[in-house]
């Protein structure tokens, strides 16, 4: 048994609630993550699913330490990174990479694609940057000539390939993929996901795949964490979770997916509107 790449215990995050901020003085804190325990096993893709406001993105941002937790511990590859400062994190940063939801806003419009991919390489003092950029582009199925282009010259799918190329240029141990296909068409989505699937396997990556789409998670992830209102309601191997979902919320999430199949009973099935008036039920 190898140690998991991430060991997370009692993770709590509170963020300022700007809607309740008084005109002067600090906004009161609101607890976003309410004490989460989980592991991310090495060299496998873990899905983190939930609806908006469930805290899945906050969880992802805590893993790569864009957010400092207010409680609990995050052990990454044997190092406690929970409260490490920027200096402490610096030697780990190349192993903690991100692919963002919207490549249009995460790629600098005034720099060439080559310069964008080269930036992390140069920052880490690597030589032979040109060849490495070409290699990174090739890995995601883009011709080396794309290095001289700008973001606006690319289609949505190509932009997301660049986002992946940048994240993987340093051969990281961990990649956070936060809703990376939610803005894309289904045909492009299929290309990007099969690409990520292949690269995760080839480069032996550990991936946290954040998504609201359980169908996509079913295909891509070995295990799944289902979140709701800052808590984990259910977690386990993907096959088991889909074959026999334990928590009513998981069942409801699965039942709410409209499959591309004729089913006259689907709309009337399961009383979904009841949930809104129900108090949030604990696990």
């Amino acid at each position: 048994m190898t140690e998991p790449l991430f060991k997370v215990r009692g993770l709590k995050v509170a963020l300022p609630d700007m809607t309740r901020k008084p005109p002067f003085g600090r906004a009161p804190l609101v607890e976003i993550l309410k004490g989460l325990d989980f592991d991310l096993p090495r060299r496998s893709v873990t899905g983190i699913v939930g609806e908006s406001g469930s805290g899945k993105s906050t969880l992802g941002r805590s893993l790569v330490r864009l957010i400092e937790p207010t409680g609990g511990t995050i052990i990454f590859d044997g190092t406690d990174i929970t409260h490490l400062g920027e200096q402490g994190l610096a030697p780990l940063r190349h192993d903690l990479q991100m692919i963002f939801q919207d490549p249009m806003s995460s790629l600098n419009p005034r720099r060439t694609i080559g310069a964008i991919i080269a930036a992390p390489l140069k920052h880490n003092g690597l030589t032979n940057v040109g060849a490495r950029v070409a290699e990174a582009l090739e890995r995601v199925g883009l011709p080396p000539a794309f290095a001289t282009r700008y973001r606006h010259e690319l289609s949505g799918g190509q932009r997301q390939r660049v986002g992946i190329a940048r994240a993987l240029a340093l051969s990281p141990k961990f990649v956070l993929a936060d809703e990376i296909v939610s803005g894309l068409d289904v045909s492009t989505q299929a290309q990007i996901l099969t690409l990520l699937e292949r690269l995760a396997d080839e480069m032996e990556l550990t991936v946290a795949f954040i998504s609201h789409d359980l169908s996509v998670v079913r295909r891509l992830c070995k295990q799944v964490i289902v979140m709701r209102m800052g808590e984990i309601v259910e977690a386990g191997p993907t096959d088991t979770l889909f074959a026999a979902p334990q928590h009513p919320y998981t069942r409801e999430l699965i039942a709410a997916i409209p499959l591309p199949e004729i089913d006259p009973d689907w709309l009337a099935s399961t009383p979904v509107e009841e949930r809104e008036i129900q108090a949030p039920s604990g696990a």
């Binding site: 989505q189 299929a190 789409d213 359980l214 169908s215 996509v216 079913r218 295909r219 699965i254 499959l259």
Partner: peptide, 13 residues
């Protein structure tokens, strides 16, 4: 994508 048939779905065009 279809969660009922993950391997047969998500095929690039």
């Amino acid at each position: 994508p279809r969660y009922t048939d993950p391997m047969a779905s998500l095929r690039p065009v």
